[in-house]
């Protein structure tokens, strides 16, 4: 459960807010819920590793928005921690997280998570394609003194 949940929460967090809002609106879902924690904008300290793999150090912060809610009918709890300052993004992410723990799961997977995963994968492939086009092979030239 937690592995699958980890995956969908990550997809929801990384989704462009506007894309997620459109996909959510298209489902026509509007479940009743109560806030356990209203959307809150804050920061998280991003850590790097010395030498790429060594001891951690604090690189700088990034903005995040979090919230938690409980569905009125199903009673399941949804959490969201999403990059940026978009409270609607956090609310929809938490609602989807809560609904994914109900019988609506397969419907939401098809309507929201699968398209988000496909978009994300396509974006990564396109970016990798752009990068691959700039791949270069350097040749060392024979220098005068070697001749």
């Amino acid at each position: 459960m937690s592995d699958a949940r980890k995956t969908w929460m990550g997809l929801l967090a990384k989704a462009p807010p506007e894309t997620l809002r459109q996909l959510w609106d298209a489902t026509g879902l509007a479940p009743g819920f109560t806030w356990l924690r209203a959307p809150e904008i804050g920061s998280t300290m991003v850590q790097g590793c010395i030498g790429g793999t060594g001891a951690p150090f604090n690189l700088g912060e990034m903005t995040v928005t979090r919230c938690a809610l409980k569905l009125r009918d199903a009673g399941t709890v949804g959490h969201a921690y999403v990059q940026g300052r978009d409270k609607t993004h956090a609310r929809i992410a938490a609602l989807v997280d809560a609904l994914m723990q109900t019988a609506q799961e397969s419907r939401l997977r098809a309507a929201i998570l699968d398209p988000l995963a496909a978009d994300h994968a396509a974006h990564r492939r396109a970016r990798a394609g752009e990068a691959a086009a700039t791949r270069v092979d350097f040749f060392t030239m024979v220098r005068g003194e070697d001749q």
Binding site: G42, V46, Q47, C49, T53, P56, L59, R66, D137, T140
Partner: peptide, 30 residues
């Protein structure tokens, strides 16, 4: 930045898993 509540810290970034848009080495050509 000083007005933002600190909600926590991240796991150390895994730069080895980066989707690189640029990556050059001046020490190894291949």
């Amino acid at each position: 930045r000083t007005t933002l509540p600190r909600l926590g810290h991240t796991r150390p970034l895994d730069t080895g898993a980066m989707d690189c848009i640029r990556r050059v080495s001046a020490t190894f050509k291949d």
